[in-house]
Write a protein that binds this DNA or RNA. Structure first.
Lengths: 194, 194
DNA sequence: CGGAAAACTTAAGCTGGTTTAAGAAAGATG
DNA sequence: CATCTTTCTTAAACCAGCTTAAGTTTTCCG
């Protein structure tokens, strides 16, 4: 189970299975039900999560009570409200399971101790954040570069399987438009294909 | 001069001035003219930059030849096309000086060697990327949460001094709208204040 | 300096995407 | 498996922000 995490770490840095075994006590295995919140906007954010199975999303509440999704996490991604987690502030985002999920969690205190005891893990997390940062920049690039329709097509062609797994409402929110407009797009494209 | 970088590193991790002195050969001091490109879209990206003085921006070219600005870097910020730099790919973004600037640069090879020789620097860059990632997420949050007008007001109140230093054209692009619309906003707000 | 280029302003017309509202389909839950 | 709730669709009216185009001001640089 936690073997998946070991593989993931080993893909980035040199690590012995002995070292990994010694680190295990810092991690906890968690079973999460669909729609369960792991981090809640406005509450402290004490854990960081690694997805073994299923999927998570991150969103914040808009003034009219809607949920604006800004990220997804699937297998092999870490997710939390990084800012709140690292600074010990209250969360600006909610992290919620989209499907039943298995995740590994680590608390802020354990993370600090882990990094102190196994400094080579700094390198692993440096790479993780480097990649997350790069991905977030590309996200911004696409938001500006593509029209809503292009953005949808781009995402649909990049993650055809994932798109089947998630409610259109959430997808529309992630892409930055209304579910109504997504309906319109799909209808238009279905007609076009005939 | 490079003392500024030492201070910045020391703010994040424990480091002796001896260690820093030993690391100095990896860094180069650079004088950059206004509008000079440090990274060019489409070309390899081999350097990472730390701003001592002045300011940089990151942009990409839109289909109609415009420049879409997506980030600024002022004193004490690192900037490069992270994805291209770390993976050795060609750059998706251009990094350009907005004002005459003094920066410290480090090449990819030197960065790799630096991290191998001084592993504690992994911790420093882990924190740098963590913060950059968090900032980029907030950027996405604001893009979705705020209307263009609110986004402008938010930015104007957060960085009143910086706003004076940069052309409106670039600011408008960063905020995601046209210079014409920015003019309109300013006019409207000037009238409102009377 | 002085002339050219770049940046900024103004205003009218236009459009991609929102809002609203109501019905149809699909999922959840006892 | 029936009901309640949530999600999805459709369509019309609407608007924030864009485009275009022309004039004005500022900056650049020889």
């Amino acid at each position: 189970m936690s073997d998946i995490l070991f593989q993931h770490i080993a893909k980035h840095i040199n690590i012995s299975s002995n070292d990994f075994a010694a680190m295990l006590p810092y991690f906890r295995l968690l079973n999460v039900k669909k729609k369960e919140d792991l981090v809640m906007e406005g509450k402290p954010c004490r854990q960081n999560y690694f997805v073994l199975k299923g999927s998570l999303r991150m969103f914040f509440l808009t003034e009219n009570g809607g949920e604006q999704t800004i990220q997804f996490a699937i297998e092999n991604w870490w997710m939390t409200d990084v800012d709140a987690f690292s600074k010990g502030k209250t969360a600006s985002f909610t992290v919620q399971a989209m499907e039943h999920a298995e995740v590994i969690s680590i608390s802020k205190e354990d993370m600090d101790q882990l990094l102190a005891a196994y400094p080579f893990m700094e390198r692993y997390f440096r790479m993780i954040y480097e990649r997350a940062y790069a991905a977030s920049l590309f996200r911004v690039k696409y938001i500006f570069q593509l029209s809503k329709e292009q953005f949808y097509n781009h995402f649909a062609s990049q993650y055809p399987a994932f798109i089947q797994r998630i409610p259109q409402k959430i997808l529309a929110s992630f892409l930055g438009f209304t579910p109504e407009y997504l309906s319109e797009l799909r209808k238009k494209q279905a007609l076009g294909k005939k």
